[in-house]
């Protein structure tokens, strides 16, 4: 009888599908999950960049904190320098030990490097100035060529070296890039 055949067919189909589903198969699944990113103040970020305590490290006066505590350096008219003192001299190498610190507040041990700034980094017409960063007081090991390892929970003091020749312009300003890569 046709009607019965039809019904039996449906029954078999249903049973077949149910068996397939029952073993944990699925045809498709989608799930939406939220992603949120908190932008921290720089001293509290995963790669914390912070001033040093000026009562312990005098050269901390060259570091300033701006929006969201982003650090910048002003080798000019810093607090604590004489009013007549406006910056570095010609044909000189200035080393400022322990100006700021980098703290590893992330999840992995990292190697930190900081780019060197020279000449055209400052201005297309500039010449005669190089700025390097180095660990603590170890000025012979610039971070552009010798990255320093900072394990999670640790920090590293950073110094700044300014090498002048006979600069073609007076005021130099540029952004240096701090890079931290997992080891």
């Amino acid at each position: 009888m046709n009607r019965r055949n039809f019904i039996i067919g449906v029954g078999s189909l249903a049973a077949g599908s149910a068996a397939a589903v029952g073993t944990g198969a699925f045809t498709s699944v989608t799930a939406d999950r939220s992603v949120s990113v908190n932008v921290a103040d720089e001293d509290k970020a995963y790669l914390g960049i912070d001033k040093l305590d000026g009562t312990v490290y005098e050269n901390a006066t060259f570091a300033q904190q701006n929006t969201k505590n982003q650090i910048s350096f002003d080798i000019n008219d810093a607090n604590g320098t004489q009013d007549s003192s406006d910056g570095v001299g010609l044909d000189s190498t200035y080393e400022f030990d322990n100006v700021f610190q980098i703290k590893n507040q992330g999840t992995q041990d990292v190697e930190v490097s900081i780019s060197e700034l020279s000449d055209s980094d400052f201005d297309p017409d500039a010449s005669g100035v190089t700025v390097q960063f180095y660990p603590g007081s170890n000025s012979s090991s610039p971070l552009n060529s010798s990255p320093v390892t900072i394990n999670t929970g640790n920090s590293q003091n950073i110094g700044i070296k300014v090498i002048t020749d006979d600069p073609s312009i007076d005021d130099f300003s540029a952004d240096a890039t701090i890079s931290a890569n997992d080891i």
């Binding site: 999950r33 939220s34 990113v37």
Partner: peptide, 27 residues
Amino acid sequence: YFDTGSDEYAVNFNDSGNSGSGVNPNA
């Protein structure tokens, strides 16, 4: 950074568990 605190998980770049509270500004 993977928050499994509730049944529906989420990605939260906030607490690193190591004093870091977020990504760096301008980075």
